[in-house]
């Protein structure tokens, strides 16, 4: 009996010990993995003002309709750094602010860099934002800016690929055609080789020089 208990104990202890050792090893491995990923992230992040995607990812090649009514793919802009945001033209506050801030950033770039940058505005309100309307709205903030719209499905797919969210909100008791769009207000930066590199919150765009710094760093 005593022997059996001892044996059991002995077995238990050695097994426990190997469990502990294995566990500690796994923990150390996991920790070093997390740490290495974290330092890799830190190394990239400290270079940029925008929120870095580490690792960066292939930018989703959206298929939409441009302000001239032609089909438009992100791939057409390969070779250019693309800054784009989602919004709608009936938006009184966030969208004009975003576009005018982007206009300021764009015009603050040296001419050589400006030629390599394209700003794009993607409507999340295809019901009202037809190409004609976008053509008269988006270039107001800078004549080089492009406005895109598309079918509700095309827009939904694009938004999903970039983790954007939008929703129609009716104002109670009003005309059914009077509505707002709630939407996430991020700006996405795609490098000339079609990698999704950075993301900005719309209020970060105020810092023109920091934005210019990121663009110059990516254009290298």
């Amino acid at each position: 009996m005593t022997y059996a208990v001892k044996a059991a104990r002995g077995f238990g202890t050695s097994r426990l010990r190997s469990f502990i050792v294995a566990g500690a090893l796994l923990l150390a491995l996991g920790a070093s993995f997390v740490f290495s990923r974290y330092t890799a992230y830190q190394q990239v992040q400290q270079k940029f003002y925008g929120q870095a995607l580490v690792p960066d990812s292939q930018a989703y090649d959206f298929k939409l309709v441009d302000q001239e009514g032609h089909s438009f793919r992100l791939d057409q802009l390969r070779g250019k750094l693309v800054l784009f945001s989602f919004g709608f033209t009936h938006c009184p506050n966030v969208c004009p602010t975003t576009l005018s801030d982007l206009g300021k950033v764009y015009r603050s770039l040296p001419e050589r860099e400006r030629a390599k940058v394209q700003v794009v505005f993607i409507s999340v309100d295809p019901q009202r934002d037809k190409p004609e309307l976008l053509k008269n709205y988006v270039p107001y903030f800078d004549k080089s800016f492009i406005g895109l719209t598309g079918s509700p499905e095309q827009i939904a797919q694009t938004a999903k690929a970039y983790g954007a969210y939008y929703e129609k909100v009716h104002t109670p008791g009003e005309d059914p055609d009077v509505y707002f769009m709630d939407h996430s207000a991020f700006i996405y930066l795609i490098s000339p080789d079609s990698r999704w590199k950075l993301i900005y919150n719309f209020d970060q765009l105020h810092q023109t020089q920091k934005m210019v710094g990121d663009i110059e760093r990516i254009l290298g």
Partner: peptide, 19 residues
Amino acid sequence: PMITTVQKHQGHETMGMST
């Protein structure tokens, strides 16, 4: 007068406004 609202949808911040 409008207020700006910030809501979370699937972990994403969504800007909206409401009267």
